[in-house]
Each structure stands twice: as C-alpha cells, then as structure tokens.
Simulated assay, not measured.
Amino acid sequence: MSVDLGLEGARALVTGGTKGIGAAVVGALREAGARVVTTARTVPAGAIEGVHFIAADLATAEGCADVAAGVVDRLGGVDVVVHVVGGSSAPGGGFAALDDAEWFRELNWNLMPAVRLDRALLPGMIARGSGVIVHVTSIQSRLPLPESTTAYAAAKAALSTYSKSLSKEVAPKGVRVVRVSPGWVETEAAVAMAGRLAEQAGTDYEGGRKIIMDSLGGIPLGRPARPAEIADLIAFVVSPRAGAATGTEFVMDGGTIPTV
C-alpha cells in the first residue's frame, strides 16, 4: 500500500503466513514497515527478507507455546497479531460424516490457536497499554453449507464470538480486537479446487469458479476476492488510522451474504 499507515517498526505475528491470505498479509505488513514473524507447519522453500519464520503446528498447545516464546525471543514482544491459520479437512456428507475426531480437528485448527496465542501474548500488550489483534473468521459462520462446512462454520462462529467477548474485555486496557471475515478468496487452494471441479464437470477453469460461486448462492461482484485485497484491509485495520475500530467485523465477500 502506498499510504503511510504508521506501522514502521511495528512488531507483528502472522499465523499461517506462507500461503494464501497469510502470505499476502505478511507482504502487506512488511511493505508498511513492520517487523514480522510468521508460522506454518513446514519451512517455506524460499526465505522472505526481513521475515522471521517459526515452524510449528498451531493445532497443538505445544506448537502455540513455541510460537509465543519465539515471537518474544525474536522481537522482544508483539504489537500486532493476525490470526490467519485455519481451514478444513472435514469430509462432505453432512452431520453424519462428522465424528468426534473431525469436530475436535476443526476446533483445534480454527479456534484454539487464537485462544492459546492470545492468552500467551495479550498480557504483554496489556502491560504496555496498546496492541491490535485480528481474528480472520469467515462468512461461513453466517452462511454455512450443510453438505460440507458444518464443523468449519461452527468453529469460525465460535472464533467470532470469542473475539467479540475478548474485545469488550481488553479495549479499556488499550488493546483493540477486530474480526475480518472473508468470503471466497482465490488462493492457491481455491484455484486447485476450482480446477478439480472443472475437470469433474468437463468444463474449464471459469466453469469451475462458477460452480463454487453458485454453491454460495452467487457472488454479486462476479468474482472471488483476491488475497491482496484481504491483506490490504487487514493492514489498514491494524494501523493507527483505524484506531477507533474494535469489536467489529469487517466483511469482504463481494456481496455474497444476502442479508443486512
């Protein structure tokens, strides 16, 4: 972003920062002058200049503890935390396909990393009287697809409710907590999914995109969001220019949610 966001020297943690939205957020914050630590389960192929990397499985308590300690070790503390890590591996087939293991997997991937890292890093923010936390939720929390996203949507809804409650608790102590809720975003994984659907349907990539958009009830904008668009929104939200934004949810879904 060409606008000065006042993030020069800010210390930031971005989870899930090697692909998709997370990688775009890392790039946007670095461009704005922030010092960034990011995480994923595996070390990326190429190092990113000025970005510290911690390999950890954030679906585990041990992985979250390693990242929290690593952030303090590398940056001396943190001013901005952006929780991007998440996703779903649950099978299709509706509620009956979801056993306890699938439910716990979705919660441990989409809710608990934020809970654990916030618990570890918030005390430092509160002691300084400043900080920003962004929880990346999903419009699935309001627009679940019964065939395939029930557990994921429920986990994201839990994250959203947790985020709202946390914002009310820590805003008087100088820490802002905000949610960013994307719709369908054309990440590498989304491109691969559209390709698979296109192949199964005997159509081209644009046809595969349309299948996904139709499953969501349509996207009035006519296309999915781009990772850089979500990242630019997050970079603004964590900046002093959005200093009065807390406890709210910013939706970027191309108009997918059809209600007010």
Results as ranks from 00 to 15, higher is better:
E8Q: 12
G9I: 00
A10L: 05
A12G: 06
T15M: 10
T18L: 06
I21C: 02
A23L: 12
G27T: 03
V37Y: 00
T39P: 01
A40Q: 03
R41F: 04
R41K: 13
V43Q: 13
G46N: 14
F53S: 11
D57E: 04
G63Q: 02
C64A: 14
A65D: 14
A65G: 14
V67I: 04
V72P: 05
G76C: 04
D79W: 04
V80W: 13
S89L: 12
G93T: 13
F95S: 14
A96Y: 10
F104S: 09
L107I: 13
N108F: 11
P113K: 11
V115E: 05
R116S: 08
R116D: 07
A120P: 06
L121N: 06
L121F: 02
G124Y: 07
R128V: 01
I133A: 10
H135F: 07
T137E: 10
S141K: 15
L145K: 14
T149K: 11
A153F: 13
K156Q: 10
T161S: 14
T161K: 13
T161I: 13
S163H: 11
K164N: 09
S165C: 12
K168P: 00
A171G: 05
V175Y: 07
V185L: 07
E188W: 02
G202T: 10
D204W: 01
E206Q: 15
E206R: 15
I211L: 14
I211V: 05
D214Q: 07
L216N: 08
G217A: 07
R223I: 07
A228G: 07
A228R: 15
E229S: 00
E229A: 12
I230H: 06
I234H: 02
S239M: 03
R241I: 06
G243H: 13
T246P: 11
T248N: 06
I257D: 01
P258G: 06
V260P: 00
